[in-house]
Design a protein around this nucleic acid. Sequence first.
DNA 1: GCCAGTCCTAAGCGCTTGCTCAGCGGCGCG
DNA 2: CGCGCCGCTGAGCAAGCGCTTAGGACTGGC
Lengths: 216, 216
Amino acid sequence: MGAAAERAEEENQEWAGVTPDAARRLVGAAVEAFAERGYHATTTRDIAGRAGMSPAALYIHYKTKEELLYRISGIGHEKALRIMGAAAGAEGSATERLRDAVRTFARWHAEHHTTARVIQYELQALSPEHYTEIADLRRRTDRLLRQIIQDGADSGEFRADDVPGTTLAVLSLCVDVARWFTAQGPRTPDEVGTLYADLVLRMVGAPADRAGSRGA
Amino acid sequence: MGAAAERAEEENQEWAGVTPDAARRLVGAAVEAFAERGYHATTTRDIAGRAGMSPAALYIHYKTKEELLYRISGIGHEKALRIMGAAAGAEGSATERLRDAVRTFARWHAEHHTTARVIQYELQALSPEHYTEIADLRRRTDRLLRQIIQDGADSGEFRADDVPGTTLAVLSLCVDVARWFTAQGPRTPDEVGTLYADLVLRMVGAPADRAGSRGA
DNA sequence: GCCAGTCCTAAGCGCTTGCTCAGCGGCGCG
DNA sequence: CGCGCCGCTGAGCAAGCGCTTAGGACTGGC
């Protein structure tokens, strides 16, 4: 099995909730194309072609090209929210929760950098109604992370004078992974996750208990 | 003078090197439009309209729409390189130079967030030849920052196990300011700069001599 | 007064875009 | 076998795109 086929299979898992099969193939093709060229530079002919269909077939499963982006954004941001929620809802100190949040959130943005690039950098192409809906998901993700940092500041674990500003910086750092990460780079998604978790823990002035640790 | 006129004047200064006047107005209009909607979603009619000209006038000063993006990218990245170079070339400890680099670099990305957004997020729309040329400027900026961090690691001022990774994270953090910053937000560009400088110094484990400081 | 040169516009060309629609093939069911 | 239905295609439409061209209005030099 070639690398392309492997990646295709992984993406099929990523979009497992999308049925029927043709609709799922279209989502995969659209993510690939949007990530590569951007939403506006991608044609419906290109998406359909990558999915092995005629241009008209796209409109059986989606009303418009924008609806495809909306579906991708919705699924992607829900996944991101769930990742952040798992870390925020876990037991443990603020330090442990922050480490876990950054590690998994950054790792996801590296591992699924095509999807992440689309959902993070093509938001402006959504319709106003769809945009506000997606923006709500992002606000909830932000709130979860801010609460972790606030907890750490309250308990004295972290030294964070500006909790909203720090939250913004941490989120920004993780999100931007989608912009620069490529599978050809020197770092695996796992390595990016642990590196970023270490950097962020120092950034908030968390006690340096194995702050330089690597590995699981 | 209204806010729009004030911003227009500031942008005229930013593009002072572009002559004649009509060409400068077109650059300003293009930056605005590209930042707002993205390169591909912007029409030459829109750019010309914002500059108060007919669509055809654009082609007297620029061969193609892509050349406009190329000019903007070149000027913008040269400015970014000069900012980083000023900080890297200054006298002082690695800590002082890193603080200055992050403060000025992040501040520029906030203050000129429209320009920054275009030059950082529309690179893929450049022609291959233009892209490699711009990529070289970015590599030089990266190298300057990496040297500061390397110096700090060598001298023992910083605790950076992974210098290239840390450099990447710091650069990523500053660049991403262009994505989320708006003039309507609660923070001034100056405040973003000092906040980010403090966060980054802690991130590299620099001695906390007034690391929580604020103001000039 | 007249010309050359500069800067701009009105009109529009050739092409691509998102999207539509009439109709076809193949499958399940009786 | 024959029928209905679902998934799909080939062909193409209206609109908008980047860009071109012919020509007009203004300016400075003589």
